[in-house]
Write a protein that binds this DNA or RNA. Sequence first.
RNA 1: GCCGAGAUGACGGAGCGGUCAAUCGUAACAGACUGUAAAUCUGUCGCCCGUUUGGGCUACAUAGGUUCGAAUCCUAUUCUCGGCA
Length: 378
Amino acid sequence: MIDFKVIHKSKKSNARIGILRTPHGEIETPSFVGVATQAVVKTLTAKEVEETKSQILISNTFHLHLKPGEDFLKKAGGIHKFMNWNKPLMTDSGGFQVFSLGFGRDHGVGKILKEKSDLKVTTKNKPKNVKITEDGVFFRSPKDGQKLFIGPKESIKIQEAIGADIMFAFDECTSPVADYYYTKRSLEKTHRWAQICLDSKTTDQALYGIVQGGKFENLRTESAKYIGSLPFDGFGIGGEFGDEKRTMSDMLALTLPHLLYEKPVHLLGIGHLEDIPEIMKSGVDTFDCIVPTHYARHGVAFTSEGRMDMRKSKYLSDPLPLDEKCPCLTCITYKRNYITHLFKADEITALRLLTFHNLYYFNSYVESLREEIKKNAL
RNA sequence: GCCGAGAUGACGGAGCGGUCAAUCGUAACAGACUGUAAAUCUGUCGCCCGUUUGGGCUACAUAGGUUCGAAUCCUAUUCUCGGCA
């Protein structure tokens, strides 16, 4: 079970400070949620992740089902013990993979569309590697082609065996190029699945329902009202929120009022630095994003001087700390020229050092914004 | 000294008479990435013009030659590597 309490509401925005208690400890919200898809924050040990001020992580049902399998995890004593992470943990349901391995892969499109696209997903389209049915989704492992089926019942069963503190309902994350009708039909299915997830649950792990609706205002509202009416322990907000006109903040402002104020809200998979203040102002309590860890492995450091691509040769002659203002282990120990050397030499320590720093930087930033909320300055 | 093999763009290394400014790696440079298919992917990469199709110039050790046409064939030179003295 989880317990959530709002302990302060900003006078300036909908931002709020909360305490989320789980069987594996409590966290102060709003909080960034690090991504540990395969029961690991890539490149770091659990202890190191703690040292980045991470309070909570999210792992993934789809990937853990494939490897090592939930039965194995159950025998290993649950995921916390398995990965040596004794703090709060969520599992995503596999709903994102319906998109990322389906239309996302077919179209080479991420869940956020940056440019206008001629691509369109209608109810006549079928993804190549994924088959979506009323009962669930047939997947094919992107690694070895292995077939698997995950529906709402299966997802809950797997998530229960994995044993995270918070589970998510199985949904379909729709493509940013999905049209209105496709999104509507998908939404209705996600809603039916939400009820099945609730009915399938047998443990006292928390279960969050997921609001969908893409970039369509009335679908978002409809979804928020419906999912908000179900007895979930908290709510996730998924999918994308459209381009220029509909900003994310507008969509969140539209969605949040329909969800119970007393329950925690998680924004799924959003969290570039520039998004974070907006996310927090809207009243979201937790949000996960691959950006700090994923970008780290591609050479990008997020610093007080902005983004730095540490693969660039210019840093080879730069003897300054990665970020002079950052007190993290990477920044107090190593210089830019060394980190760049490690990238150019294809040394895995480069990935570790940036992953550590980026997580520390994101968590510190969120921490500083929490202070702002407490002072009613955000 | 003799015999054999070879010299290709920043580097490695294809090509072995026309479709070659030259496959492919690497390096370099630029870019992308938002519930992780991702230590990944994309673009540029002789010089000069054109926004694109394209045009011009200089190039495959050096110098000659054969040919309508040569990185590709021949000759000489220089250098490198291997074997024998």
